[in-house]
Design a protein around this nucleic acid. Sequence first.
DNA 1: GCCTGGCACTCTGCGTCCCTGAGTGCCAGC
DNA 2: GCTGGCACTCAGGGACGCAGAGTGCCAGGC
Lengths: 338, 338
Amino acid sequence: MLSERRLQVLRAIVQDYVGTEEPVGSKALTERHNLGVSPATVRNDMAALEDEGYIAQPHTSAGRIPTDKGYRLFVDKLAGVKPMTAPERRAIQNFLDGAVDLDDVVARTVRLLAQLTRQVAVVQYPSLTRSTVRHVELLPLAPARVMLVLITDTGRVEQRMVDCPAPFGESSLADLRARLNSRVAGRRFTDVPKLVEDLPDAFEAEDRGTVSTVLSTLLETLVEENEERLMIGGTANLTRFGHDFPLTIRPVLEALEEQVVLLKLLGEAKDPGVMVRIGHENAHEGLNSTSVVSVGYGSGGEAVAKLGVVGPTRMDYPGTMGAVRAVARYVGQILAES
Amino acid sequence: MLSERRLQVLRAIVQDYVGTEEPVGSKALTERHNLGVSPATVRNDMAALEDEGYIAQPHTSAGRIPTDKGYRLFVDKLAGVKPMTAPERRAIQNFLDGAVDLDDVVARTVRLLAQLTRQVAVVQYPSLTRSTVRHVELLPLAPARVMLVLITDTGRVEQRMVDCPAPFGESSLADLRARLNSRVAGRRFTDVPKLVEDLPDAFEAEDRGTVSTVLSTLLETLVEENEERLMIGGTANLTRFGHDFPLTIRPVLEALEEQVVLLKLLGEAKDPGVMVRIGHENAHEGLNSTSVVSVGYGSGGEAVAKLGVVGPTRMDYPGTMGAVRAVARYVGQILAES
DNA sequence: GCCTGGCACTCTGCGTCCCTGAGTGCCAGC
DNA sequence: GCTGGCACTCAGGGACGCAGAGTGCCAGGC
């Protein structure tokens, strides 16, 4: 069990190291934080912290730097999430409010996150699984050809061609559109199948085939189009990584090119809180010298997708967590509004 | 005017430097290429080439490296395009044939180019300048809120929110929808502005504001839809840039994040031939130490978009040009088939 | 029992110095 | 116009030494 003061020493080490990027020694620590004890005492504490594996020295006669375990303790016990200031929040809102469509929302979110945190930003497109239907549109393209357009509450739009087994009149189509929307608008994807299963019964026998075809295409669209996409940005921030970065940066860039890796990375984020994965906690080897801060976001209380940033383990965790959380919150709002 | 041998010396310098990444001296040159003359003679030639600005020395008593001007001469006069081998061509075709949709074609092309050239690949989505409007849909979401959905003949769907200056009745909306579609359906994007400019006149004074708002949103959407998208990949290859690359790589990464810059870069590619922009020939400052090799591709005779790679000026031009040309050719084929 | 000042020790980082080797420019001779 | 020879320059790397930061440990004090 670490004493209160030792925890404070660890906190001070993390803060100083993140600020200066240089190993921090006992003397510097006592000068910059008033711990009320002498360097010698701090040295003893440091030795204890090192025994426990929270800090390490790059070489003898150098200061200490936090280990992954040290950062973990710092994040869990010693630091909160630093909230954004009011002007920052306003800036975020203004910037996101300018978005014209979903692509633009995602693109702006990436740029915003990258700028705020000065790190690499990753934003996943809202998934459809937990979305609700806003509107279904049916457009006649030819006598026996209909375009089905599905609009979700997250602003995503999917369209499909439907080849009907028989010609289908304008009025029947309008009828179907009206009935369909009155049943499914505002409902969850998962509920849709039950809601429409008896719909063909309301139509003349000759139209039932077409109605069924349209419905099954709709259901397919709902299920199929969960394909996860994502967008990344701010890779130029990788150059601020550190001195030895040629070696570090390459595997990171490679990992960032693998969508699968990134999705897995974000996928671990749980719903409410900000998730932090530090150094070796990341499964992917190339990301062993990076930390990932991610969080779910969504329009309602539920998360429909994730977003986050990737940066050096030596990062400003409270600030980054605050920025990520704030951005997620506002993106959620934007999605709910639009 | 440079003598034949001096051109050969320049060619040898470019080839050796590209291979070894180190300044090449007169002695090494005579050993590796049988020019039939002694190092002393080569030195004279080198001095002449340096006077003309084709090569330079990083410092006194070092070998020579080609300048941008030297590479330019090499590309224009001394080297051809190195064709892909038959197995390489087959591999390209196989890999691209597996694509399921447009997104996939572009994604595969990026990966392919990045792998073949071991550089950063940039692929522009096929342009929509020649697209036509299939349908415009207007959905009432709230009394003064309308969702505009634009469907193009290429199957792309764009949607926009429109906040109306005044409440707008269902019937007026239906009226607008009908009039709008009868005018623009099947027409080219570029013709739309003229076709709708007098549309507000057909409405009551109280609705005109809303109609104008909707129309201007539509026009904006058309322009944006026209806006070119692109995909990049292989940024990890930037780490092979050189020794001093921390300084070099940063502006490159920054430039690659600016879609506008990239589009301009590719935009300069002329139709038939492979275009090469070397070092300072690139307008963007951050790309002054890179070369861009790009070419147009398309399904018919017409180029509908561009693709290319960005790499260090010290690159294998013949090989890169060959790869870029071959990939463009096969992508064009795939697009024509699908 | 815990904190403190003092002390000897150990490194890295940096600057200096020097040497080697690669490469050059120039010149006289063929 | 080509060649061999020669003197010159300069980056790169190893050896050396010094200063400074930081450490561990110990004996003494509250």
